[in-house]
């Protein structure tokens, strides 16, 4: 690995570790019932958000889903305000009105996440329309899962973004399941990328657990979007380690097998990039340990921040309904 790529790889790994540690600590405390808000954890999928967002600036727009913590963190969102929002505290990024599935930090370009499957996909296309009208190099990025491609509005959005040549990157994180139902029981043609390519897209397929592969493919795609204003589509194959919702593994409800979960845990995206960095330079081992130590403190601080923040007072009930 070249020196320049090595610095980028360390940045990506740092983001991945920030997501992993945040989510694992969150999973750890979820059973305490300090908050009731449902959490959809991103453990196992960290490479995608981290590697795509490494190519973005604060001016670029990002939109996400119910499983949004990873995208928010990768875009540079504030950990304290995220944890506080999951705890539904007044200091949360949405003032305790949204919870885990409704987060925002416009200062870093993370515009919104939505609990409605495919809900932010057309919204991201609208942001790309704003970017196109502004005629700068801004782009919009929509993260979503394979389940979102079951929805009609996904296809409406794919068509319109191509038709109007809008600067947007669609990132499909194909984790093989929409909640409990595998893609084989949902789609007549399961090759999502192939279907999208018929709209004239340059479709990029990547191993979503290989951070450097996602990074370089996203980099080429994003540079192309900035240059041409034409949209692109990235399909990254991955797997969520934990339950659709909550900190368990969903092995008790019969929709996935223990050996599949084990297989994907063996393909840990963090272990892969970690080994690549250490193979390149043994000194990276210490650097990574330092990073990990720093992040553990950040995450512990965010939990402390959330715990010591107040829940919204009753007089906040109408706040933000209208401007």
């Amino acid at each position: 690995m070249e020196e320049k790529l090595s610095i980028t790889a360390l940045n990506i790994l740092e983001t991945m570790l920030r997501i992993r540690i945040f989510e694992q600590e969150l999973a750890e405390i979820t059973p305490n019932k300090e908050f009731n808000c449902p959490v959809h954890l991103y453990v196992g999928q960290e490479a995608i958000a981290s590697s795509v967002c490494e190519n973005l600036t604060d001016q670029d727009y990002v939109f996400s889903t119910h499983r949004s913590h990873g995208h928010y963190i990768a875009k540079g969102g504030n950990l304290n305000r995220l944890m506080a929002e999951i705890f539904c505290r007044e200091t949360g990024c949405s003032g305790g009105h949204g919870g885990s599935m409704h987060i925002t930090d416009k200062s870093v370009g993370f515009i919104a996440s939505s609990a409605i499957v495919a809900g932010t996909i057309p919204v991201a296309v609208g942001a790309a329309l704003t970017a196109k009208r502004a005629d700068n190099s801004q782009i919009s990025v929509a993260f979503f899962g394979d389940g979102a491609t079951d929805e009609g509005v996904f296809w409406e959005s794919i068509n319109i973004a191509a038709l109007y040549e809008l600067p947007i990157l669609f990132v499909c994180e194909n984790n093989l399941f929409s909640t409990h139902l595998p893609v084989s029981k949902r789609q007549a043609n399961q090759d999502i990328g192939e279907k999208v390519s018929t709209f004239g897209y340059k479709v990029i397929k990547a191993d979503g657990n290989d951070a450097l592969e996602v990074y370089s493919k996203a980099k080429t795609a994003i540079e192309g979007i900035r240059r041409t204003h034409k949209p692109a589509f990235l399909e990254a194959m991955t797997f969520r380690w934990l339950a659709h919702v909550g900190p368990t593994e969903d092995l008790d409800i019969g929709y996935r097998r223990k050996k599949d979960v084990e297989y994907w845990r063996g393909r840990c995206p963090i272990k892969l990039i970690n080994n690549q960095l250490i193979d390149t330079n043994k000194k990276n081992k210490d650097r990574i340990q330092e990073i990990e130590k720093k992040i553990k403190v950040e995450v512990a601080d965010s939990i402390e921040f959330a715990r010591t923040s107040a829940l919204p007072s009753a007089d906040r009930i109408s706040h933000g309904l209208y401007n």
Partner: peptide
């Protein structure tokens, strides 16, 4: 550019308007 007669995609078009509005249009 400012009078966009769209495909017959009402939900998509509404979402696009929401996204444009959320980002300064």
């Amino acid at each position: 550019e400012r009078m966009i007669d769209t495909p017959v995609s009402e939900n998509g078009v509404m979402g696009i308007a929401v996204g444009a509005a959320a980002t300064g249009s």
